[in-house]
Each structure stands twice: as C-alpha cells, then as structure tokens.
Simulated scan of single mutants.
Amino acid sequence: MMTTTTAGLDADALIAAAREQTGLTDLGDDAMLEGLHVLIDAINREAKLTAAAQGRWAQQITATLANRLQVEHYLAQHPALLDAPVEKPLFVFGLPRTGTTLTINLLNADPARRCFLRWEAFNSVPPAAKGALSSDPRYVAEQARLDMMLKYAPHISAMHHEDADSPTECQFSMAPSFCAQYYDSVLHIPSYQKWLFSTSYLPAFRYQKRLFQLLQENEGGQWTLKNPWHPLFLNDLTTIYPDAQLVMTHRDPADVVASACSLVYQVRKMFSDDVDPVEVGKSQLRTFDLMIERMMAYREKHGADSIHDIPYDAQLRDPIGEMKRLYARFDTELTVEAETAMQAMLDANPQGKHGKHSYDLADYGLDRAGVHAHFRDYTERFGIACRA
C-alpha cells in the first residue's frame, strides 16, 4: 500500500514556479486566487493524497497557472481579439453519464461548429493555425500521452474516452480560475465543494470567454461546448453569454448515479489509497440534487422551453433524428454535409468501442429503488423512463 503524504502544497510556491517557468507574471483577474487558495487548503487537509499524487498535483496546478499566464500575455499582445464576439454559443449539459459526450461528438462533426478540444485546453497558446486543430505539434504530443494512458489505464477509457482532438468538457476552460467541478470530482475535498456550491462563477466565465476569443483567432465557427456541471451556474453562464443556446440530456438516474460513482471512485483511487465508496455516493447525490434544483429554478425564471431537452434513450434510438430536433429548435440549418459527417462519426464509434463500463450501485451504499425514489420529482417532470 502506498503511504499518504503529510507535507502540503503551497499556493504561492506554485505561482512562483509557473512564473519562473514562463518568464511571465500577469495572471489576470485576481479573483482566481480565492479558488486557488481554497483548493490548496482542501487538498492539504482532506484529499489524503499519496506522495506520488502530491507531486503530480503540484505539476498539474503549476501547468494550469503557466497556461493562464501565457493566455493573458497573448491577449495583452493581441488586444483586438477581445473585440471579436462569441455569438450564440451552444452549451450541452446534464447529469453526468447522460449522453453529453455523444451529443457533443455529433455536433462536433458539423464543420460550421467550433468545439473546445482536449489538447488546446491544456496548451492554449498560440492558437492553432488555420486547419491545424488535428495536426498541431501540441495535438501530436497530447495524443501520444493519451495513447500511453490507454495502455496503462484502459478501464478509464472504457468509462470515458477522449482523443487529443476530441471536444473536452469546457470546465477545463474554467479550471485556470480554480472554479471547476473537475477538482471536486477527482479528489475528496468537501470544503472546496462547499465553496464551489456557494461562490460566483462570473470570474471563471469571463476568463473562459477571453480564452475562446483567443482560440478562435484562426479557427472560428459557432462555439459548441459540453460540461455536465453547467446546471450549477446557469445564471452566471447566461450573464456572460446572454444569447447562449442551452441543451440538457436526461437518463434514468439509477444508471447515472451508478456510472458516475464508478468513474469518480476509479479516478480518485489514482490519487489516494484511502477512498470511501459510500462517501463518493453521498457526494454525487449532493451534487446532482443541487444541479436539478438550480436547473429547475432557471426554467421557472426563464420558461420551460429556455432549455432544449434530449432523452438518452431517444438519442440512442435515433441520434440523427434528435440532432434534427435540436437544429430546428434553434433555427439552425442542418446541412447535408453536417448530417453525413454525423453519420460517419456514429459508424466509426459504436457504443462500447473502448470497452464495457460495468458498475453496481451497491458498491456505493445505494440501490436502484432508493435512487428512483430520491429523484422521483425529476423523472416524473421530464418523463424519464426508469428501469427497475
């Protein structure tokens, strides 16, 4: 068994390391410092990292800070980029494991759209040259890293697979503001979760928009984004993007909770040898309850049709048909070229291509009947079919 480390991370030291690494000093909006300090404190007190994992997190946070420094420096040198609009961005969200990945991959096949790609989330500067989103040296390096990870941790890919030029969760554009559900998913940091649930997300969305304005310099299109966790902060999202198009996916919550718990548990075990599966289950329920509560409050305020809904089962039965419904909802033309590309993507990526993801609610102190009872108001409101 690996031993849990006792020495802590130091926020100021990580900032200094990023500045030394890049030769840059300006991190932009100081609001990001609050999230960084809350995160570091929570990691030191609660995450029970192994010694190896602590080193990896020091490297990861330093790299995140370095990327932010480079983004702010590039924008300072190219201020005209901030005059270009981010028009009608489409955001796909829903409880995790409800088909958000399938939805974004279908939309990504449309050449008129611009998705936030995995490699550029972590190495954003300079923006890709025209036509180089799948050939940039940073793409090549990230794909090599992912291929190695697939070799050593194939079970993670079976749960959630991404290539270097796959659309990634746009919370990774919020992570450099240290206001992202990602951290709470992969680590046991309840004090950070408490902060995340009560903070303003506006600074994170302001930075995100600046990043998109940089990335679209040579490769534009309608920004089309995915992040399951957006129901936590729809009001702040639409404050920054008042013309945003909102899309929510829905699935039997017993399958959602089981699959999400399994993924969170397996990833947390990569960083700690003391992970409580029952606490994972409780944490996921807390998060999902708040997501549903805030999503419903948003609909109450803006109208039931302010969010376009996609049932998971309908999407699996007729994915192109669901895309036609979505395009019609937002008065967007689904071109023959886009539809053909979507079908080609489906043909090349059958369900289970990267392995089968197996999971059991009982591992997390839960059962199907109990989860169905817990979410009954939600499932009845959206007509979600639940399997006993």
Rank of each mutant, 00 (worst) to 15 (best):
T238L: 13
E46H: 09
T287Q: 15
V140F: 01
Y192G: 03
P85Q: 09
D236C: 09
L225V: 09
S173T: 00
I156S: 06
R45H: 13
D163K: 07
C261T: 02
D360P: 00
V371F: 05
Y265P: 10
G383H: 12
A80W: 05
Y327W: 09
A304W: 13
F178K: 03
H250R: 12
D41I: 10
S306I: 11
L39Y: 14
A328H: 10
A341P: 08
T224G: 04
F197R: 12
Q143Y: 09
Y183Q: 02
N67H: 10
G55Q: 09
L263G: 11
K130F: 10
A129I: 05
Y139R: 03
R268L: 08
A112S: 02
A260V: 06
M174R: 15
G55C: 07
E333K: 03
N44V: 08
P319R: 05
R114I: 00
Q171R: 11
Y182D: 11
P231H: 01
R97F: 05
H73S: 14
V280R: 02
R299W: 03
Q284K: 10
L234V: 08
L334E: 01
A144K: 02
R56E: 14
S283E: 01
Q245I: 09
E120P: 06
I292T: 03
Q171C: 12
E322D: 14
S200L: 01
W195S: 07
Q222S: 06
R329A: 14
L346E: 10
I61P: 06
I43A: 15
A13R: 14
L196N: 04
L346R: 07
D360R: 00
Q59T: 03
A52H: 09
A244H: 05
L326G: 04
L65E: 11
L106Q: 05
T64H: 01
P96T: 13
D184C: 11
M345P: 05
T6Y: 08
V336C: 07
V125G: 10
M148K: 15
L346H: 14
D12M: 06
K356W: 00
D305L: 11
Q343K: 12
Y265K: 14
N108F: 05
L196D: 04
F375E: 13
A144I: 02
L187G: 08
M248I: 08
V247K: 01
F172K: 07
L69Q: 10
A254P: 00
T103K: 00
K301F: 01
T335S: 15
F197T: 09
A7N: 12
Q343G: 06
M345K: 05
H78T: 07
H78P: 03
P85V: 12
T340I: 10
H372P: 00
C386L: 12
Y359K: 04
V92A: 00
S306C: 11
I104K: 00
S134Q: 02
A31P: 14
Y265F: 14
H308E: 14
E300K: 14
A204P: 08
S177D: 13
F116R: 00
Q315F: 14
L237D: 06
M342S: 09
Q171L: 13
A13P: 12
G35V: 13
K356M: 04
